[in-house]
Amino acid sequence: MITSFFNKSKPINFVIVFFITLLAFLIAKLNVIEDAITFLGFIKQAIILLLIYASILLVNFIVSKNSLTKKNNYEILLFSLFLLLIVPTTSHTNILISNFFVLLALRRIMSLRSQKETKKKLFDAAFWIAIACLFYFWAILFFAIILAALVFYSDNNLRHWIVPFLGALTVFTLSIAASVVFYGSYFKIFNISPQISYDFSSYNTFQYIVAITILLSFGAWSSIFYLNNIKKKKKAFRASFKIIIIAAIIAFLIVIQTPDKNGSEFLFLFAPLAIIITNYIEIIQEKWFKEAFVLVLVIAPFFLLLL
């Protein structure tokens, strides 16, 4: 029933996804609220919520524009369910903003497939990732996706390899100028925190253990089939599918090495993982298994909320 409902893209699907997202957002805020709500505070939270919704729509745009899945809405359903599974992902503004800019960069990287305005797209992608780094340092790892895309598209134009670095340098230069104007210091505006930590004790709760187990087990299982099916895709789209798996690996590395493990770091993993798992759902032949697979992903977040 669930699979047939989301098997085709329909407006009602977006309403359901936005409701699940709103629920995750409100639960996260209820867990941390201490002071009385002010008008400015309400406006700020409304803007953050709109940013999350914009990220979901951006994921849907990337998927549909590049034929990463069939014409369904599984990817945005999974994205919203992941937000509900680990609700801290909706409450850390810097990572929400950083992830949004990473998605903007991913959109431009995917569009390299057309081989049109390549320099502009490479510059834009690097520009967005550089901005993402201003809000969360380890987003810098996503810069590797740009270089990987150049390899996948067999781009031997030396200028194209230089352009991404110019895009990053532009953000660096503008940031220094802004820092001097607003703070009177060259580097005060930078949110540089290159520390690494492998202390996973903060994940040692029942909710985190279950949530992480579901994400990693379902993701790893789906990735096996995802990789096997890339060669069956149209040649023009194969690079896009490879880029998604690289994005998932980079996001996983961020989760592993981030110094402040509060759950919000999993946000970078949600978009690529939602796309990978959606691809697996689409190839499941047994209807009962397909229903059970999706049902576990739907029920698990709500089950954890009751604990």
Rank of each mutant, 00 (worst) to 15 (best):
D199R: 04
Y208C: 13
E34V: 10
N99H: 07
A149H: 00
N229T: 12
Q257K: 14
E75D: 03
L103E: 00
I230E: 08
F270K: 12
E286A: 15
K233D: 07
L166W: 05
I97Q: 01
F123R: 08
K29C: 07
N94A: 10
A54D: 02
F206G: 06
A178L: 15
A178C: 09
I2S: 09
V15K: 06
I254H: 05
L23E: 01
E265K: 13
K231S: 14
Q45C: 02
F19S: 14
F303E: 03
K44F: 10
T21Q: 12
Y203V: 02
D199H: 03
L26I: 14
S222H: 09
L304I: 14
I189S: 03
K10N: 05
A300S: 10
V294H: 05
T213L: 15
I281G: 03
K242F: 15
Y53N: 12
F303T: 11
F268D: 01
D199Q: 06
S201Q: 02
F268R: 11
F289L: 15
E291N: 15
F101I: 10
D124K: 10
S9K: 12
A24W: 07
S179E: 06
A178V: 11
R238L: 15
S222D: 05
I16Q: 02
I230S: 13
Y186L: 15
F18V: 13
P301Y: 06
K261E: 04
V63P: 01
F14C: 03
I12G: 08
L85D: 04
L23W: 09
I37K: 13
Q195H: 00
L81A: 08
I176W: 07
L22H: 02
S202H: 02
T170E: 05
A144W: 00
F135W: 06
I56F: 00
